[in-house]
């Protein structure tokens, strides 16, 4: 198995998503609140994982723009669950050596008077392995 196929299987297994269920309606991208921040949009995540085109996703800033609001999961008529694919690719990216998006050293300067700890733990969980 080449690296491309390995990555694809890994993402599908980790997410539990079957991207071939997608019927290309685009409702995920229609409902996404982070659409404009993303270089690859939710429907593209589904289609690119389906065709095994994972590398561009791994290197994309889009991974860190998804809000995990699950709107795409709830509104997808085919029950594809695109957000789970974004999550699986993001984990594949940040689990690589030195690929943490955020480190403990970043935290002190984020602490402001009104910042709830919830913000810091959530961001830390999303951006750090």
């Amino acid at each position: 198995m080449n690296n491309k196929e390995y990555l694809q299987e890994e993402i599908i297994r980790r997410s539990g998503v079957n991207p071939s269920k997608c019927m290309r309606c685009g409702k995920c991208s229609a409902t996404c609140p982070a659409y404009d921040e993303m270089e690859y949009h939710p429907h593209q995540f589904v289609n690119m994982v389906e065709s095994g085109d994972i590398e561009p996703l791994l290197n994309s800033e889009s991974l860190y723009k998804c809000l995990s609001c699950f709107a795409c999961i709830d509104r997808c008529p085919r029950n594809v669950e695109p957000a789970k694919l974004v999550e699986a690719v993001r984990l594949t990216a940040i689990r690589q050596q030195g690929a943490n998006r955020m480190t403990a050293n970043d935290v002190p300067q984020m602490i402001e008077e009104d910042v709830p700890p919830q913000l810091l733990v959530s961001a830390f969980r999303k951006y750090t392995k």
């Binding site: 290309r24 685009g26 409702k27 991208s29 229609a30 409902t31 659409y35 429907h43 509104r75």
Partner: peptide
Amino acid sequence: KGMVGKVTPEGDVLKVQASDL
């Protein structure tokens, strides 16, 4: 070619958020 994801009534307009694939 695409789908509507959310319709938000606001004032007397319906804000339609959709995708153009």
